[in-house]
């Protein structure tokens, strides 16, 4: 993919630096009260992280390790992490980690995006939902794969078992990102990697950026595992509803397979993630408990904000239309 258009002074500086590394302009300073909603910040983070995934055709080949870019990203991350810490840090208890994760998930009474999608979403709204999702889903599982070389024994075995399923178990056509492409094509969406990044709102980029933050820094490995567990534990029920919504809107079983596949697969993954992955990790690293929960809580919080964003937009449209 190519570098997306800038959204403010931060992304402008970063894109400039990546296109012309010999340029010596100083990066602008940064302050924000609401990092998750800051378009310029989230796009800049997204670009900085993407250098470690597929990268950009028009960026300097080793922009990934440009010390100026890394220092710039670290500056942005300071505010971003401070906000996450304020909003998402939870007090651990003595209960087994799987139970604590379950409690966190159950306590989250977010907006009912999946129920809305199932019953009311128009084809256009479904398309918008999927286009937003594609920012992460076209690299589904990739952030969590960064955790593999950082863990051992049963934790590694559990992580690899989940990831192997996400990547299709050796069959590219079963890879979750590929199943997602089928759904995109049904909706007439462009399934090229990163195609909807330029128009994705800050909150959509933030959903991806939080996993990349945990993926890039070894120090956040426990949060990365907790994040994965939260994704897996909040997957089966919504995906059942998304599948029903897609079928209502005329999808074939194949078009909706991404969603139905996640009902079956994540019924397995949620147990492995909560009990085997996080369970064994916390057994080996008792002091990591709080960070595991923190990662899960971050995933839930951002998913919530994303759901709010879409539903609010759709509600406003309804008001205008009626």
């Amino acid at each position: 993919m190519r570098l997306p258009p800038a959204r403010g002074p931060l992304s402008e500086w970063l894109i400039g630096r990546l296109c012309e590394p010999q340029r010596t302009a100083v990066s602008p300073a940064y302050r924000s009260k609401l990092p998750w909603a800051d378009e310029d910040l989230q796009l800049s983070l997204w670009i900085a992280y993407e250098l470690h995934y597929r990268g950009f055709e028009d960026a300097a080949i080793d922009g990934q390790w440009d010390p100026e870019v890394l220092a710039f990203r670290a500056m942005l991350e300071r505010e971003w992490v401070a906000w996450l810490e304020r909003e998402c840090r939870v007090m651990p208890s003595d209960a087994p980690i799987a139970e604590q994760l379950r409690e966190l998930v159950d306590a989250e009474d977010g907006p009912r995006l999946s129920a809305y999608v199932r019953r009311h979403a128009t084809l256009d709204q479904f398309r918008q939902f999927v286009a937003n999702k594609s920012v992460y889903q076209l690299k589904e599982a990739d952030p969590h794969s960064f955790g593999i070389p950082r863990v051992d024994g049963p934790t590694k075995a559990a992580l690899v078992e989940i990831q192997s399923d996400e990547y299709g178990g050796g069959r590219p056509e079963r890879m979750h990102a590929e199943l997602f492409r089928t759904t995109m094509r049904w909706l007439g969406l462009n399934d090229a990697y990163g195609n909807y990044v330029p128009e994705a709102p800050a909150v959509t980029l933030a959903v991806s950026n939080v996993m990349s933050l945990f993926a890039m820094h070894r120090r956040w490995t426990p949060a990365l595992l907790g994040h994965l567990a939260a994704l897996e534990m909040t997957s089966t029920l919504p995906n059942r509803q998304y599948a029903a919504g897609a079928l209502r809107l005329g999808a074939t079983a194949q078009d909706a397979r991404y969603f139905t596949e996640h009902v079956e697969a994540d019924a397995v993954h949620e147990q492995i993630a909560a009990h085997d992955l996080c369970g064994s990790y916390v057994d080996d690293h008792p002091t990591a408990l709080s960070d595991v929960l923190f990662g899960a809580s971050c995933a839930l919080k951002l998913d919530n904000l994303f759901a709010h964003h879409l539903l609010d937009q759709w509600k406003d449209k309804q008001c205008v239309a009626s």
Binding site: R102, M233, S235, L237, V263, E264, D266, A267
Partner: peptide
């Protein structure tokens, strides 16, 4: 489960 004998996650809605 609606896809018995496989689990579809419905158990998480039941009292534990």
């Amino acid at each position: 489960s609606a896809i018995a004998p496989l689990c579809d996650g419905t158990h998480s809605l039941l009292p534990r």
